[in-house]
Design a protein around this nucleic acid. Structure first.
Length: 238
DNA sequence: ATCTCCGTGCTATAATGACT
DNA sequence: AGTCATTATAGCACGGAGAT
């Protein structure tokens, strides 16, 4: 699908915004039919979408534009900017300032998660909702219940990977957020970790016997999970 | 031989304006 | 108001040219 004409088509849409097949044909030096054939293929992949506009006599003109997925094909440097900002914060405010920043983000994230998980009454419900929230944030999360009654929360993608590499406190914070949001009824352990070379991040969530309300808040922010079974060296980021 | 890309020729669709 | 012609564009089927 990545032939030259489709790339030029995507570039034309990116550079000049939504256009008709006829206009695109003029830009690319091919016929409108050829353009439509490419557009159909791109639409099938969710990279472009159309909108019909009535503009006087005749059939409404069909304007083609990039979808969010289409725009995502063009590189941005959000990750690089984030890393630069983290380094700048650490440089200007010191390690303590960075820790305060992480704590602030953790508190805000936790509050949001607690709001969304408020309706879930069981641990399974909470894990399911947590997986949904994480998926909405781009983590491609899934969950399952194992035979021993524990749960696995698996994140197949890390949308903050570059930032997490630059600032490992972010990962530590995420583990703490999970533990806090699931409450005293569960114990959370990270068993796979992208930053350790694994393909994904995975968390084992084990139910804790009711009535035992040990405070884990002190422990939860203390550092990476010890029970890491992550795969050996796989130094590949993308 | 097969695949990809593109063009030709035709039909379908939709809005507008003229006519009855 | 209803009908038809006109205008403009989209969509489909098919085939040719060139690359692999």
């Amino acid at each position: 699908m990545a032939d030259r004409t489709t790339d030029r088509l995507l570039h034309a849409l990116k550079a000049a915004g939504p256009q008709t097949a006829g206009t695109l044909a003029g830009r690319l030096g091919v016929t409108a039919v050829a353009v439509r054939q490419h557009l159909d293929g791109l639409a099938a992949h969710g990279l472009v979408a159309h909108e019909d506009r009535r503009e006087g006599v005749g059939r409404p003109r069909r304007y083609w534009g990039l979808t969010a997925a289409g725009h995502a094909r063009f590189p941005d440097n959000h990750a690089g900017l984030t890393v630069e900002l983290l380094e700048a914060i650490s440089g200007v405010f010191g390690a303590g300032g960075l820790e305060r920043l992480i704590a602030h983000r953790e508190a805000a994230t936790l509050a949001g998660y607690r709001r969304r998980l408020a309706a879930a009454t069981t641990l399974a419900g909470k894990v399911r909702m947590l997986a949904r929230l994480r998926t909405e944030e781009g983590y491609m999360a899934e969950w399952r219940r194992d035979a021993d009654g524990s749960f696995m929360l698996i994140e197949n993608h890390c949308p903050i990977c570059a930032a997490a590499r630059a600032c490992q406190g972010l990962c530590r914070s995420e583990l703490g957020i999970f533990a806090a949001v699931l409450g005293a009824a569960a114990s959370v352990t990270r068993v796979e970790h992208v930053l350790a070379g694994a393909r994904r991040c995975a968390y084992r969530i084990e139910p804790v016997a009711t009535g035992i309300d040990r405070s884990r808040r002190g422990r939860k922010l203390r550092g990476p999970a010890r029970a890491s079974r992550s795969m050996p060296a796989m130094p590949r980021l993308r």
